[in-house]
Nucleic acid binder design. Structure first.
Lengths: 349, 349
DNA sequence: CTGAAAGCGCTAACAG
DNA sequence: CTGTTAGCGCTTTCAG
C-alpha cells in the first residue's frame, strides 16, 4: 500500500496546524512569511501533493468536464477533442473524453459515469437522432441537473452550437450545379447529420433539378469503408450520375476509391465534394473540395456556452443556440482549379 | 446550487440507516429481500447516483488511469487512445487522456495533475528523450509511487512495451535495397524514435552501402508539414537519392507532396516507405508501403503490464519489457505491385 | 440482518 | 496571523 503524504504530515513536519498548511497551499489567505517558508519546505521535502479528490468533495466541484464524441479515432473528432481539451485546460478544467461508437448503450453508460463522477459539465457531441430520441437519457441528464451543451443536435432547453449545415451543403451542391452537373448523388444519413441531406435537396429543388431518390444513399457509419460500399452499391444499380456530394470527407475518400476501381475518373467523369475539411482532405489525391467546419471556433463556442451555463442556477438557465458558418473549400475533386477543360466539358453538355 | 440526493436522503426515504443503503447499492453484503426492495425503490424515485468522489476518498482508488500521448489529433495516437480507453473501460477504469504536443512543460503539468487526482496508474506514451531526459519528471513519478508503464522509451525500473523498431526499420530499408535502391534518404529524429534511424543505419551498413549523412534529416514534429519542409530542404541541397524512408506515415505524406510538386514521381523516380500504417496509408495515392504497428496489441500489452504493476506493492515491482513485432506492408509507393518496369529499372542501374 | 459511529483528506467558519 | 472544529458523502468496523 502506497502511503501518501497528507496535509497532516506536512503540518507536523512544519510544526503548524493543518489549516495553516491549507492556507499556504491555497495561497489566498494571509500567512506570515516565516511560517509560509516553513510550510513550503515541508511540502517539498515530504513531496506533498494536495489530494484533489478530497478537495472536490468539499468544494463540490471536480474541475472536470465530460466530453462525448462519436469516435475518437475519426480525424474530425480527434481534432475536436484536442481543441476542446486544450481550451478547457486553459480554463482550469480537465477533460474526460468518451467515444461512443454511436451505440446508445455506451452513451448511457458514459453519461451515468459522468454523473457519478460529478463532472462540472458535459459537452455532448453526438448524432442528433440519438440525443433527441432517447428519452431515458434526456431524463437522466435533466434530473441530474448537470450543465450540458451539445454540438449539432438541438434539444429543448439545452444550449447548443451547430455548424450551418443546411447552408453549407446547399453551397456545396450549388457549386456542383454551377459546374454544369445535373445528376448529383448524395451519401449521408442520420449518422452524418440529416441537415446535410436537406441542404442537398434544397439546392436541387431551387435549381429545378430532378431529385432522383435512387441517387440518395444512407450509410450507418462515418468511415471510408461505408463510402466505398455505398458507391459500389450505387454503381451496381446502374443509375447515372456525374457528381457526388458526401456527408463527410471520410465517406468521400472511400467513394473515390470505389470510383477509381471502376475506372471512373475524379473529377473528369464524376465530380466529388466532401464535408468537414479534415487534414487528409488536402493530402488526398485528388485534393478534396469540401465544406470546412471551423473546429477551433466550434470548440470555443461550446466551452463558452458551457461555462455560462455552469454559472447559472439550475432553474433559470436560458438555452442559447449558436450557428457557426461553414466555408466551401474548392480543390481538385470538383474539377475546378485543375484543368479548365473539365469545366468546359461540363458546361457544354 | 444543485442539490444532489445523497445516501442520507435515500436512507430517510426508505426508513433505514445509511449503512443499509450502502450495503444495498454495493450488493456485496447480506440484506433482507424486503429492505433491499424498499431501498431500491427509494434510490429510483430519488434519482440517486452514488458519489464516486466520496467513494474514491474512502477506497483510495479512483478507478482512473491517466494516459499521456504526444498528440491526440494525430491519427496514430487517436487510435491508440481509443483502443486503450475501450480496453480499460472493460476493466472498470475510466481514462484521462492528455496530449502534450511534445512540450516538457505540459508533460510535467499533466503528470502533476494525474498525481493530484490520484489516478490508479499512468500509461505514458512519449518520445523517449523526454522521459529519460527530464530527471525532475522521473523523480516526481517515482516518489509518488504511482504505477506507470511506458510505450517505447525504456526507463530504469519501469515496465514498458515497445514495437520492434530497429528490426522494423531494418526490414523497411532492406526492402528498398532489395528493390535496387542505393541512395536512400531518411527523415526522422528523436521525436519519432531514434531506433528507426538506427534500423536504417544498420540496413545500410549491413549491405555495405555508402551512408551519406546529408541524406539523413531530422525533424521536430510528426505532421505532413514537417515532412514537406524536410523534403524541400533535401531537394534544395542537390543531393541525389532514389528512395526515401520516413519515420512515420504523416512525414511520408508531406514528403511525397513535396516530391510531386518538384515533378519527381513516386515510386518511379523515388520509392517511399513510411512507418505506422495508419488508416490513411492505404487511402493515400500512391498507397503507402509502410511498417505496421499492431496498435491493438500494443494497447493490450500496456494495460496488462499496468494492471500487473498495480497489483504489486510499490517496493517489489519487477519491471518487464515487452517487444511487439512489426510487419512490413508493401504497397505502391515503394514501386512493387504496380508496374514491374519500375522494379527492373532500378535493378539495372 | 441492521444501526451507530469513526473516519478518508481537506476546507471553512469560528475563535483566539 | 494561527489553531480548533465541524463536516463533505460514503464505507466499514463494531455492536446489537
Amino acid at each position: 500500500m502506497i502511503i501518501k503524504t497528507t496535509i497532516k504530515d506536512v503540518a507536523k513536519k512544519a510544526g503548524v496546524s493543518i489549516s495553516t498548511v491549507s492556507r499556504v497551499i491555497n495561497g489566498m489567505d494571509r500567512v506570515s512569511k516565516s511560517t509560509t517558508k516553513k510550510v513550503q519546505l515541508a511540502v517539498e521535502t515530504l513531496n506533498f501533493y494536495p489530494d484533489h479528490v478530497a478537495r472536490a468533495m468539499i468544494n463540490k466541484k471536480t474541475q472536470t468536464i465530460g466530453l462525448i464524441v462519436p469516435q475518437l479515432s475519426n480525424e474530425y473528432w480527434a481534432l475536436m477533442s484536442e481543441v476542446i481539451q486544450n481550451q478547457l485546460w486553459l480554463n482550469g478544467y480537465t477533460t474526460l473524453i468518451s467515444s461512443t461508437d454511436n451505440e446508445t448503450d455506451k452513451e448511457n453508460a458514459y453519461l451515468k459515469m459522468y454523473i457519478e463522477r460529478r463532472v462540472d459539465g458535459i459537452i455532448y457531441c453526438a448524432p442528433s437522432q440519438h440525443l433527441s430520441g432517447d428519452q431515458q437519457q434526456m431524463d437522466m441528464l435533466k434530473r441530474s441537473g448537470v450543465p450540458i451543451v451539445t454540438l449539432d443536435p438541438s434539444v429543448v432547453g439545452i444550449s447548443c452550437v451547430t455548424g450551418d449545415h443546411l447552408l453549407g451543403s446547399f453551397n456545396a451542391v450549388e457549386h456542383l450545379i454551377q459546374l454544369g452537373h445535373r445528376n448529383i448523388a448524395y451519401i449521408g444519413g442520420p449518422v452524418v447529420s440529416i441537415e446535410r441531406e436537406f441542404g442537398y435537396r434544397k439546392a436541387m429543388m431551387m435549381h429545378r433539378l430532378n431529385l432522383n431518390e435512387a441517387l440518395i444513399l444512407t450509410v450507418n457509419g462515418q468511415t471510408p469503408k461505408e463510402g466505398y460500399r455505398a458507391l459500389q452499391q450505387l454503381l451496381a444499380s446502374g443509375e447515372k450520375f456525374d457528381a457526388l456530394f458526401c456527408g463527410n470527407d471520410m465517406l468521400a475518400f472511400g467513394a473515390i476509391k470505389a470510383l477509381e476501381e471502376a475506372n471512373i475518373r475524379v473529377p473528369e467523369d464524376v465530380a466529388v465534394v466532401g464535408y468537414d475539411d479534415i487534414q487528409s482532405a488536402s493530402l488526398f489525391k485528388p485534393t478534396l473540395t469540401t465544406v470546412r467546419q471551423p473546429i477551433s471556433d466550434i470548440g470555443k463556442e461550446l466551452i463558452g456556452l458551457l461555462l455560462q451555463c455552469m454559472d447559472q442556477e439550475v432553474g433559470n438557465r436560458t438555452p442559447r443556440k449558436i450557428v457557426v458558418p461553414t466555408e466551401l473549400i474548392v480543390r481538385e475533386s470538383s474539377g475546378v482549379g485543375k484543368q479548365d477543360e473539365t469545366f468546359f466539358f461540363h458546361e457544354e453538355r
